[in-house]
Amino acid sequence: MNIFRFAGDLSHVFAIIILLLKIWKTRSCAGISGKSQILFAVVYLTRYLDLFTTYVSLYNSVMKVLFLATSGATVYLMYVKFKATYDHNHDSFRIEFLLVPCALLALVINHEFTVMEVLWTFSIYLESVAILPQLFLVSRTGEAESITSHYLFALGSYRALYLLNWVYRYMVESHYDLIAIFAGVVQTVLYCDFFYLYITKVLKGKKLQLPA
């Protein structure tokens, strides 16, 4: 565990808490893509199956359970409790266009052709693109509330910090995982345009509004 990895994890937890609090406090999930949230739930479900087979550390297990529980809670709040506030007309990204290619790629490019390993690989590929429905929703409505922007910034920072963690681990431990690195780079690049808008607008107190 190095500082980049830990900061990345904290940023990830922070993002999820911001989102849950926003939905809970405003009793509304307006502006949030339920499809991205479903994809994240699928990501955690397929990645953390090793909760039952491999013990790494208490920290690891607790975080895995936390991610599973909070993503389940988010999906529940959006599709059950505050269903009436869900923006489904704008949330029209077709997730099969992400699920199918990720599944096929995981079957072809993986470390080992076993059920657990293919599912892990699938979850890594899917996570890298899971935010697309959310970014698509923001582009369709042309704007995002500040709190939604903070959520996206924290969520994007998490993988960017993991990239630093992988550079560090490569140098210090000679440890690297090409699949995770490749997907992590893709994931971070997808946020770049958003990062730019966040820094130039939201941090200066303006609302995130896309140019018309």
């Binding site: 990895r5 990830h12 790494v56 690891n60 470390h111 892990w120 963690n165 995770a180």
Partner: peptide
Amino acid sequence: IYIGPKKDEL
């Protein structure tokens, strides 16, 4: 025996 790459990250 190959047990796959080490997965200690989240």
